[in-house]
Write a protein that binds this DNA or RNA. Sequence first.
DNA 1: TAGGCCATCTGGTCCT
DNA 2: AGGACCAGATGGCCTA
Length: 215
Amino acid sequence: MAPHPSRAPAVQVSRETQLPFSRASDDEVTCATSAPPSPTRPPGNRAEAEGRGCRGAPNKLRARRGGRSRPKSELALSKQRRSRRKKANDRERNRMHNLNSALDALRGVLPTFPDDAKLTKIETLRFAHNYIWALTQTLRIADHSFCELETPAPPCGELGSPDGGSSGDWGSLYSPVSQAGSLSPAASLEERPGLQAATSPACLRPGALAFSDFL
DNA sequence: TAGGCCATCTGGTCCT
DNA sequence: AGGACCAGATGGCCTA
């Protein structure tokens, strides 16, 4: 389904766009502090989540809970807990904003048409994967052609997927890995003619179109 | 109205 | 101890 650009988070892409993939600590990011706190959910429905345990043994935690620290009043303890939670929430928000900024930067370098709706997160990742794969194939073909011109001898490389797949035909542009996904990129891109065009064989065939043509 | 996407909160775990 | 990372839960918004 199409994303909702109007609802797109007001992410202030600052550092990430300038220094792509730099590892900025959350403390360095100031964008999220302007984000309004979510008034969505009333607190306190976490009780059932107790003991869920994502990774590893929950026993470890219980052992830790019994730890002996200086006795504090219940009020102070609760205050401290809330304060820590709030800080953790802020950090988590910053972290997610950071992640979204990186995703936006990635969107920025992917060939899409201006009138295309903003790619969703999963679409962006899949498209980037396929795009890189397609560019790799283009380079191989170019290399292949160059070798044939130089020496009309055996081809210097096989056309195949980076993953060892046998697909060399442009009809299946998507790498085998992506195709194996439960949500195939082809399916997700079918609804976006622009993206299909951008990664279409015609565009990627050497000499047919320059990349700037669809950038 | 159902389903998709998203932001946020939250608690657990790992690491420094 | 505190921060980063992760995944589950929840609710809002939007579109078909």
